[in-house]
Amino acid sequence: MLSRVAHMVYWMQRYRERVENVARLIDVNLYLSIDAPGDAQEQWEPLVITGGDSVLFKELYGEATEQNVIEFLTFDERNKNSILHCLRESRDNARAIRQVITSEMWNELNQLYLYIYKTAGSKGKITSPYEFFQKIRSTCQLFTGITDTTMSHNAAWHFGRIGYLLERADQTTRILDVKYFILLPSPQHVGSPYDDIQWAALLKSISGFEMYMKKWNDIRHASVVEFMLLDPYFPRSVFSCVRRTLDSLRAISALSEQGSAYQSKPEQLLETLCSELAQMKVYEVIKTGLHEFIDNLQMRIIEIHNSLYRTFFSPNAYEMIYQDHQAELKLTE
């Protein structure tokens, strides 16, 4: 497939995943605020920090009230990670590659965008926040479902999947990074029912509460960290996302003329990361420092993204592939 098009499928899905995650974070936080003690406003700031936009937010809004944070994360186009902005990016990419995706995919994404765009322009904006964010989440999930059931699982589909899996892995690390330190035992809340609600909310931010409970039955900090980073089966854990990204890259190699014997550069990077995560023990993570561990993970994801760009997406990618292939041939000669 065309390099430019592969790049656009990747971003269409990556932005779409970001939209879903932001909507889920807001939704979970809204629910949480029902049970929160008096100082509930504090819980909105981490959402801004998670997105990595706190400087911009402070500049534009100052105080992290519920209303300000929701506006900033949902409709504010100055925020490159806002739902409206990401949805537009996703849709712009989709529109440019309508010949590659299916009409059913496009219609769903287009209608969601038009809905959010109209809501952004209307006065009262969100009348029922629960329904509003639920609709965004479920439409994004619907989009993923339509993608899986109407599009051939060809190279384009795999590049899209890589896009949303990397985004998902990245989001999970961010959510854990920000929330974990806030939730670490504070003397007055330890063991209180509110503490448990908060930890449950962290898991709900990645739709993982129920599956976590099935596996662990009660909430322990180390188990939560393990579940979010290293669980092999939960679809939003970093390990699971990274492993499936590797699957997709292998499939892309297998579809190529060189065949599955050939291993692309990003594939090599992912292979290394996967085997590291497979052997990683959670107590080691916590011993060496969760924050440092997450920092390193995020750097690795960026490195993988850059390598994907150089190998597949950039206008000069064909030269890379050619050189790689030549090198392979020399090795086998």
């Binding site: 065309l2 990618a317 064909y318 592939i321």
Partner: peptide
């Protein structure tokens, strides 16, 4: 004339 694809030209 070639097109630039993810698998080369």
């Amino acid at each position: 004339v070639f097109m630039k694809t993810t698998q080369g030209l």
